[in-house]
Structures are given as C-alpha cells and as structure tokens.
Simulated assay, not measured.
Amino acid sequence: MELNDWIQNVTAEASAQEISSKAGISLRTLQHQLSTGRMSLENKVRIATAFSHHPLRTLVEWGAVDAAWESVPDIEAALRLATDEQLTDEVLRRMKRGLASGSPLDTSVDDLMERRSQRSAADLGEYAADSSPVEPEPGDDDYHDGP
C-alpha cells in the first residue's frame, strides 16, 4: 500500500495542515514523511486515531500485526459479548478444573455444614460476640471502650 493513498483514504483527502493539527505531528515532519513515502508506525497510528480510523486496523494494514488478531477482542469486550449461557459454561468449566486439582471446591456442602456446627465461639477468636444475654452499654458500671 502506498503511503499517500492510505493518507488520502483515511483522512478523506484532508490537507497536510489539517492532518498535522489533528494528529499532533509537526507539519514539517509530516511533509517530509509524505515526500519520502516513509512514515513511522507511531505517526500512522496517530493519524488513524485522529481521523477515527481504528488503530488496530492501521497496524494490520501496515503489516505490524497479523490480521488474525483483528477478530480477537480485549477481555472486557469479550465478556460483554458473551451470552449468559457462555459465561455460565465457562464458570462451570473452571469449577470442574478446580475439582480435578483438589481445590476447596471438592468439599461437599454437608461436610462444610458439619464443620461449621462443630465450631465454638472460642474458635472464632477474641473479637467474636459472646452469648451473654445483655451487653453492657455506655453508662453501665462494667462498660468499657476497649480491651
């Protein structure tokens, strides 16, 4: 692809002055690169972005990135594009992978409930609420602000 043809196509035949201004490239640098037919990839991306031409498309057009990457969205975009069914399938796949690796996901709910019922208040540490019927309040003789 010829640089000048690409520039005319992307900028809708804007003047060098307008391209320079919108892309933040000095006019002298732009004119020099256009006259030599050689431009840095950075400036191509600046021009593309300034004229609402997708920067990834620019990288593909100039051979800096393989076209296969064009169809791969970033992770946030991919998550937004995924259906609820696709998301739940992925969560299930990861849970199954965790089961296979011996992660905590392999403990049954009944076992977890049994463990919880066997814990005493002492197991919860010094800051757990006690089981006394009435807690002292400000103004009571046995009330204090801390340990």
Rank of each mutant, 00 (worst) to 15 (best):
D5N: 13
D5V: 09
Q8E: 13
N9E: 12
A12T: 09
I19Y: 04
S21M: 12
I25W: 02
S26Y: 02
L27I: 14
R28D: 08
T29I: 02
Q31I: 14
H32Q: 12
S35G: 09
T36V: 07
T36M: 08
G37M: 06
M39S: 07
N43S: 11
K44A: 14
V45R: 07
R46N: 14
I47F: 06
F51G: 01
H54T: 03
L56Q: 08
L56E: 06
L59E: 09
V60K: 09
E61S: 12
W62K: 00
A64Q: 14
D66T: 07
A68S: 13
V72Q: 10
D74P: 05
D74M: 03
A77R: 11
A77D: 11
R80M: 12
L81R: 15
T83M: 05
E85Y: 03
E85N: 07
L87D: 01
R97E: 15
S101F: 00
P104A: 03
L105R: 05
D106F: 03
S108I: 04
V109M: 09
D110H: 06
D111K: 13
M113Y: 12
A121R: 15
S132A: 12
E137W: 04
P138N: 06
P138F: 11
P138V: 08
G139A: 02
D141V: 12
H144C: 01
D145L: 04
P147E: 04
